[in-house]
Amino acid sequence: MRAHLHQIVVDCHDPQSLVRFWATLLGTTPVDRARGWSHLDLPTGGRISFQPVPEPRPGKNRLHLDVAVDDLPAAVALATSLGAVPTGETVTDDQGSFRTMADPEGNEFCFVTT
């Protein structure tokens, strides 16, 4: 048997709004689907889907997305203008820099530079 990653699914309250946040941030087109689902196909390949769920996010994410950017302050400014919130300061080490953010529904992600 051979397996491959089909998509990453994000549980959320409002898939149509959240997919538009991510589509704008990642430079792609949102797609609304049946039963309240939405998704976006990444320009580099892969898919992120957004599934409607009634329950709130229970706590810290066990999985998050790292989004590579070439201008960290500009990426933070764009994401903030779209409804994201920075959740920490910029951290720099020998691997590069990153800034932890929360999307409009509180899902954590990081902007990273190398």
Rank of each mutant, 00 (worst) to 15 (best):
D70V: 05
P56F: 09
P86D: 01
G96Y: 06
L42G: 09
G88R: 00
L42S: 08
L72W: 10
R47T: 13
E55C: 08
P58C: 04
H64S: 14
Q51T: 00
N61W: 03
A74E: 04
A75P: 11
L78W: 01
A79T: 01
R57H: 04
A75F: 15
P52Y: 02
D66S: 14
A102V: 14
G88A: 06
L63F: 15
A77I: 08
M101K: 07
V53F: 03
D93G: 05
L63M: 13
R47H: 04
G83T: 00
D71H: 02
P73F: 10
L78D: 06
G83I: 00
F98Y: 13
P43L: 07
T80A: 10
F50L: 02
P73D: 10
V91Q: 06
L82M: 03
L82W: 00
G88W: 00
E105I: 15
V76S: 08
A74K: 03
E89W: 00
A68I: 13
P52N: 05
G88L: 01
T44Q: 05
E55W: 12
A102W: 06
D103T: 14
E105H: 12
D66L: 15
E105F: 15
T90M: 07
A79W: 06
T90A: 04
P52Q: 10
D71A: 05
S49Q: 13
V67H: 10
D94F: 08
D70W: 03
V67S: 11
D103N: 11
I48A: 12
E89H: 01
G45W: 05
E89G: 14
D93R: 07
L65K: 13
V85H: 13
D93K: 01
P104M: 05
G96L: 07
G46R: 05
D71I: 06
V91F: 01
K60L: 10
G45H: 08
P104A: 06
V76D: 07
H39E: 08
V69Y: 04
V85K: 11
A77P: 02
T92H: 12
R57A: 10
Q51L: 05
A79S: 09
V67L: 12
P56D: 07
I48M: 11
G88N: 01
L40Y: 06
D93A: 02
D66E: 14
T87R: 13
T100D: 15
P86F: 00
A84Y: 04
A75V: 14
L82N: 00
V67F: 08
D103A: 15
V76K: 13
A102F: 08
V91G: 00
R62Q: 15
S49P: 01
V67I: 15
F98D: 11
V53Q: 14
P58T: 09
V85N: 12
A79L: 06
V53K: 12
D71T: 03
V91M: 04
A75G: 12
N61V: 10
P54D: 14
A75K: 09
K60T: 15
L65D: 11
A77W: 10
A75H: 08
F50G: 02
R99Q: 11
G46S: 10
P54R: 14
P104R: 04
D103W: 09
A84W: 03
